[in-house]
Nucleic acid binder design. Structure first.
Lengths: 223, 223
DNA sequence: TTAATTAATGACTAACAGTTATTTATTGAG
DNA sequence: CTCAATAAATAACTGTTAGTCATTAATTAA
């Protein structure tokens, strides 16, 4: 009874084709300016068919966002699998996030969607759960790494690894979003280099979190 | 020739009335779900009239956002005008931002709009400039305060006040946005209290920025 | 009183997300 | 091979909404 399986594969394949078409449009125009008709044309399908595979425009959008998260995950995985000492890996992880931003800023922008509760109105709960699950993967990677650094005595025990993760993440994200503004406000009006500011802020946070042992072993990370 | 002036006043008044109506709708429903017809009805005007006063829905939205920024500015002004020592004022400022978030989370959400370049498509350049100008006021307040702390020898000279401001701001904003998620993800799934995390991250950053003198004079701010 | 100017209206258009009745393609039984 | 049943895809359609514009109402100055 291989027919059902083949059909399942073909269905999955079609879902992927639709994502690919949606991706090219969404990355280019963003959620608001992209239209389902346009995506249908790019996918060489009718609009109705799109709705056989995805419940709403927002669902389809999130499916594309998840591809971006996948890219990010792979970058993170690679950056933390070099076998280097744990504090170096944490530093690598920060760099990897910044690399992701620089090379995939369109995906980075698409992700804005995810933390605006107002925009989630049209998203199906299934899709939302799939997203949460994928998030968890990324966060597990981050948190496990920080836990390791604590266990090895490099980061202070009184800060929970989750807290440390959120703090470092929020900080980097906030600064990269400033970089992503259309204008060059900070550079031009204020004479501030945001890339340098990002490095500084990560250094400040890590410096405040590191133990004495870490500061001795990684003098280059001390400010 | 007082007639022209009166007309000018009336026009300004009408603009305010429209903002008031728009505010009640936008705070409630957000940009996407609010409709211009609905706002027109709330303002007891026809939709056409709205467009005599504001160029687009997004322009009107930003006019409302600016009221939120005004509220924030006044809170910041008050928090930093108590005559207390400068490091206490910086701490007050952080608290004031958090208070703003707690008491005006709808405005806080509306402000998401401002750093998504994709959403700005429909905004007139005039409105954008007015916004930039109002931003500058808030930032001047923050940066001047930090500059004072540097001048008085409490914050390290090698960090520019603008950089310090952006870092503290990004960090707080990022964490408050996590708090603003519909779900209680961090609390429920990860057992992390975000309010505590916010305090911690601010403390970490300030600790890393403070001079020895500051740490001696403000032992409570040392971690 | 009236012509001219300004303010306001509401019917209209165009665009777009999402639906549904219909058509086309595929499958499996006789 | 035929044909009924099922699945996949379509395209015309609906409802909603941002934004426009021709028309009407109100105000002003001569």
């Amino acid at each position: 009874m291989g027919i059902l399986e083949r059909k399942e594969r073909e269905k999955e394949h079609r879902r992927e084709e639709i994502i690919a078409a949606a991706q090219s449009i969404f990355l280019d125009k963003g959620l608001q300016l992209a239209t389902m008709d346009e995506i249908a044309e790019a996918a060489e399908l009718s609009k109705g068919t799109l709705y056989l595979y995805y419940k709403s425009k927002e669902d389809l959008y999130l499916a594309v966002v998840m591809r971006g998260v996948e890219i990010m995950y792979e970058l993170f995985k690679r950056a933390t699998s070099t076998g280097e000492p744990v504090m170096k890996l944490i530093s690598n992880l920060g760099d990897a996030y910044f690399e992701f931003f620089k090379n995939n800023w369109q995906y980075f922008r698409m992700m804005y969607f995810r933390d605006n509760p107002r925009l989630h109105q049209q998203v199906s709960s299934e899709m939302l759960n799939v997203c949460l699950e994928q998030d968890r993967r990324v966060w597990k990677l981050v948190i496990d790494l920080i836990q390791r650094a604590i266990d090895e005595g490099y980061l202070q025990k009184n800060i929970s690894p989750v807290q440390a993760g959120i703090i470092l993440w929020s900080n980097s994200t906030g600064l990269m979003r400033q970089m992503d503004r259309g204008d060059n406000y900070w550079q031009e009006q204020m004479g501030v280099n945001l890339e340098e500011t990002l490095r500084l802020s990560n250094a400040l946070l890590l410096d405040a979190m590191m133990t004495e042992k870490a500061k001795q072993e990684y003098p280059s990370m001390v400010i």
